[in-house]
Amino acid sequence: MTATPPLFEIDDLQVSVADKQIVNGLTLSLRPGEVHAIMGPNGSGKSTLANSLMGHPRYTVTGGDVHLQGESVVEMSPDERARAGLFLAFQYPTDIPGVSMINFLRRAISARRGEEIPVREFRQVLNEVLGRLQMDEQFVRRYVNDGFSGGEKKRAEILQLGLLQPLVAVMDETDSGLDIDALRIVSEGINTFHSDDNAILLITHYQRILRYVQPDHVHVLIGGRIVESGDASLAERLERDGYEPFMERTTEGVLSS
């Protein structure tokens, strides 16, 4: 059996922010249909990784490379990456007062498709995804993330995931701050999106979302590098024992380097 070629490859990536090296040579490979979970303590560099993958101007890639479908993305602007099929669900989505969700979503979906989406088709897909996420139609009349509750913001990110149909979705703590029902609905949203053609990189602190969205691989990120990888059972171990058992390795690996 020949292995399918990777959809998304992170190769020895190094990222610095404010002249501080945060991601220290991270390598990861996602095949179509896979779900990878990244877990790690606060400040270990998870959001730095996520933002730099999307091309945030404040994060500088100082080494390594990232390929989407075999194409390097590190020189691309964020919008080029998005149009190429990369998606970031933000840990802290930004509000944009005065810009209605519906207008924004229509522009975004048209940008992703490379052509204007007809109004009727847009309404149809929008209503479908809204229904699936149990979101009121009135919701899209509001301004982008403006005055949204924490949970509404996360749901709005999943709404965008469902509409934009990316190839690779990086989800930065989408489960944080959700109540029990919302967690289930959001997880179902992710599962509906997930197919054999796309891949998901799920950043989380908690094992509970992994009961709904089952990962093929779990990675432990400490000090800006992956110190352990395993299957779903690794998440259970982390939940039970914490990061303590892995800390030693970083001290050797990172601090001495």
Partner: peptide, 26 residues
Amino acid sequence: EQLFYLMARGLSEEEATKMIVNGFVE
């Protein structure tokens, strides 16, 4: 952050800026 958010959804810098400005005067 606003620019990055919109660009991360595929809007060009110019389109994103226009959208932010339109929102501002809305």
